[in-house]
Design a protein around this nucleic acid. Sequence first.
DNA 1: GTCTATATTATGATAGAC
DNA 2: GTCTATCATAATATAGAC
Lengths: 236, 236
Amino acid sequence: MTPAEPAAGANAPDSPDAARAEAAGGREGARSPREEVLDAAAQCFMEKGFGAASIDDVARRMGATKGRVYHWYRSKLDLFVDVVRYSLELIHDQTAAAAAAGPPEGRMARMLRAHLRSILRDRPYHRVALQGVDLHLRAATTPEQREALAGLIALRDRHQRLFEKAIAEGVELGLYAPCDVPLTARTMLAAANGAVFWYRPREGETEADRNELIEKIAAYCLHGLHGPAAEKGEKA
Amino acid sequence: MTPAEPAAGANAPDSPDAARAEAAGGREGARSPREEVLDAAAQCFMEKGFGAASIDDVARRMGATKGRVYHWYRSKLDLFVDVVRYSLELIHDQTAAAAAAGPPEGRMARMLRAHLRSILRDRPYHRVALQGVDLHLRAATTPEQREALAGLIALRDRHQRLFEKAIAEGVELGLYAPCDVPLTARTMLAAANGAVFWYRPREGETEADRNELIEKIAAYCLHGLHGPAAEKGEKA
DNA sequence: GTCTATATTATGATAGAC
DNA sequence: GTCTATCATAATATAGAC
């Protein structure tokens, strides 16, 4: 749990809830040497993909050389794993907090807003995470790597289960139409995550602009939960 | 337009509408030598990603060696471009046909079914296409490559416009709630494309199973178009 | 902690036999 | 049309100076 320790396996920057400033987008204001590497890696992996981005690219983005990267991370795959882990912890923590912050009625809306806010704000990290955790699972040779990647799958499932729970709850309460809960959660998350692929902060974009975008996407995602059954007043 | 011609730029296997048998999934039954290479590439890129998959991987999957691949494709990027192009033409043609095959009322449902059917059926191709066309745009050095990639963007936009048009039409007709049409189209497509990342044909899966899956996903996507306004009977 | 070499390996691409 | 070399390059990872 030490916030900054050289390459020693799976530990990483402090928990996402701490003051993470402008984690992804901010070129400056990195929080620790290790996190500076992590930010650079997230941006490089986002732009070129894990395979095409080189360690030299990551170093160059920091105005440094390889040595700095390898001092903090044992391998490129370790770096990738840490970027994805950070992405998943970040978005899960914020979504879980939003879920707990009020009554069941507006729960899903709050969760979607929190999820989407993180998608826009920490886009490089999430973009990498969505690039395919499973893809590079095959590249994992050592047991430690396979273990780390299994951990990522667990984190991803945890986040999805948060949404499944909220959907099931809403169905129970008669807010949503009955549905295949895991499938619906997956599909809704896919819709919400879509923005990570095309969103780009426009020049002079205000917080209000982003909020409007979030509201529109969340609205679509929410309406998907109301089946035709709900319209006709047929519940269950 | 010749169906099989050695590496000569942007030409490719015949149009997707022809007898394409089991394009993606089928290990056997490839239609032409060039298409056999294309199928192998789609599967390799899907499994390992464009960056990590090697030309040797593609050849090995056919039980051949590099020579065979390079006889039909000038470079790895050319192969990638052709996989994506094939994916986009395939799904667009089928969706456009479904759109034209009936009245406006059920148009979007027909389009979504056609789109989803292709997502499931030609998954390797679509998975590669969604891996990030833009990602490898940077890797394009030669003018021909940049041109080819611009063509892919155009194909992608064409498919999206098909959905935008159907949404706008539905809003006009009072079928759907007014909305930000391009944003909604993107979000709906993201939801529909989500399956490409997690779907795997289960053992003993029937056509009916697939249809049920398609119907569930399409239902979610469709309901997203009906805003709360529709529920309250407020139109426009 | 960061840098400058450098070892090693993998892979994209080519040439030419068959 | 496909194969067997082979070249050239690029990138991961390491060793050791500062």
